[in-house]
């Protein structure tokens, strides 16, 4: 009887501990490194921008919160706050681009206006431009 009680107590303690560990792990989970994630869509910057311009609602349903790999010509590379970098990709529209924010400043100096690159990021939606976040460079001057 006593032995059973002991086993039950140990089991409960283990379950509680596992739960706490899982909770702690979930709570501290950092954003995924998209360099290792397969994209849900592979598109050109022009394709992505025009699908939002033509029908924002439908494009949002398709792309928002998805991992999108976008290829195109770099329009600008600008430093943002907190070591982030904003890279804009040109599209067929003269007014609207695809803006990709890379979380930490490790962007190769070889990426500049005119470079052909592809960037993988999480699509946040459309303001005046299509916005991608948590981006990584998937292909470009250094990654053929």
């Amino acid at each position: 009887m006593k032995k059973n009680l002991k086993i039950a107590l140990i089991t409960i303690a283990l379950i509680v501990l596992a739960g706490a560990a899982a909770g702690f792990y979930m709570y501290n989970l950092k954003p995924k490194d998209l360099g290792k994630v397969k994209p849900d869509f592979v598109v050109t910057a022009s394709e992505l921008q025009s699908s939002f311009e033509e029908n924002e609602t439908a494009a949002a349903v398709k792309y928002v919160n998805k991992i999108v790999e976008v290829s195109g010509e770099v329009g600008s590379v600008q430093p943002g706050e907190n070591n982030s970098v904003n890279i804009s990709l040109k599209t067929n529209s003269s007014f609207s681009s695809v803006i990709c924010t890379l979380p930490s400043g490790a962007v190769s100096g070889n990426i500049k206006e005119g470079s052909q690159i592809s960037i993988r990021g999480e699509c946040s939606g459309y303001l005046m431009d299509v916005l991608l976040n948590n981006c990584v460079v998937a292909g470009g001057p250094d990654k053929p």
Binding site: P31, G80, N86, T101, S124, G125, L127, M128, L131, N133
Partner: peptide, 25 residues
Amino acid sequence: NNQVASVIDISTGEMVFQVLIKSFH
């Protein structure tokens, strides 16, 4: 959020800001 769109007209002082909530990280 590093993706804020904003226009300011310095002759009238008007300002407009717009953000996507999903761009907050």
